[in-house]
Amino acid sequence: MSEERERTFVMVKPDGVQRGLVGEIVSRFEQRGLKLVGAKFMRIDEELAHDHYAEHEDKPFFEGLVEFITSGPVMAMVWEGQDATRQVRAMMGETDPADSAPGTIRGDLGLDLGRNVIHGSDHEDPGANEREIELFFDDDELVEWEQVDETWLYE
């Protein structure tokens, strides 16, 4: 393998869960060749929401973020692959679905900035993956396994 595999955090937000998009989103990542190593269908409490969005705490939209992310269940996941964070971000599209290209998750499935279906770790913040994975998953909830088609995915 030419590059080190990395893990990245992804979450289908309450609007994506309510709209029945979890399977569609999981399928897109699987079809891309990323490997699911952790998944948890859960309800985020206020404390976890505050920790998750801590970098936005001083912004005027912070309370709205917390209220929305705690409003219903989410699907929290950890995906693994070469350059996984950058791949996931590209597949997600822009934060505002109106600015997202067709073919991206937000471009195809999102309509509104405040209801943009999915969250993924920021590839420009080197610590975001680890921080978000640790917030949502214990080490024993992440599964090491060999993907049978891995030799067909990577050189």
Rank of each mutant, 00 (worst) to 15 (best):
G38H: 09
E150I: 13
E144I: 08
D45I: 04
G72T: 06
L36Q: 06
W145P: 00
A128R: 01
D15K: 11
V78G: 01
H52I: 07
T104S: 14
V74M: 03
E57R: 15
V37H: 05
L111H: 12
R32G: 05
A90T: 09
T95F: 06
K35Q: 13
F136P: 00
E150F: 09
M1C: 04
A98W: 00
V66A: 04
E150D: 03
E134R: 07
M92G: 03
G114Q: 08
R32E: 12
S121K: 01
D96C: 07
P126D: 08
L153A: 01
D83A: 08
D99H: 10
P60N: 07
A98G: 02
E155F: 11
R89M: 08
G103T: 11
D15F: 12
V78Q: 00
G114K: 14
Q82P: 01
E141L: 06
P73T: 10
D51F: 02
G38T: 07
I118H: 04
R5G: 03
E94P: 01
G64S: 10
D96R: 10
S100T: 08
V143C: 00
K35G: 00
M42Y: 08
E4P: 08
P14D: 06
T8N: 13
E130W: 01
D138K: 14
G114I: 09
H123R: 13
I25Q: 08
G93S: 07
A76D: 01
R5T: 14
R131Q: 12
Y154F: 07
I25N: 09
E134V: 00
V74K: 03
T151K: 09
G16H: 11
E4S: 15
G110D: 02
E150M: 04
S27H: 13
D139W: 03
L153I: 03
L153V: 03
E57T: 11
G23M: 14
G16R: 01
F136K: 02
D149C: 03
R28E: 07
I133L: 05
E146H: 11
E57Q: 14
L113T: 09
F62Q: 02
V26K: 14
D112M: 12
Y53K: 12
F9C: 08
M91G: 06
H52R: 06
F137M: 02
K13S: 13
D122F: 03
G23R: 14
E144H: 12
K40C: 11
M91S: 07
Q82K: 05
V143K: 06
A101Y: 05
E80F: 06
M75W: 10
G93N: 04
E30R: 11
E80W: 04
G33N: 09
Q147S: 08
Q147C: 06
T104I: 09
K59N: 07
G23H: 11
D83H: 07
E6V: 15
E47Q: 14
T85S: 08
Q87W: 01
S71A: 11
F137W: 05
S27E: 09
N129E: 13
R19V: 15
L113P: 01
Y154M: 02
A54C: 03
E6R: 14
S71R: 04
R43Y: 10
D15S: 12
F41M: 15
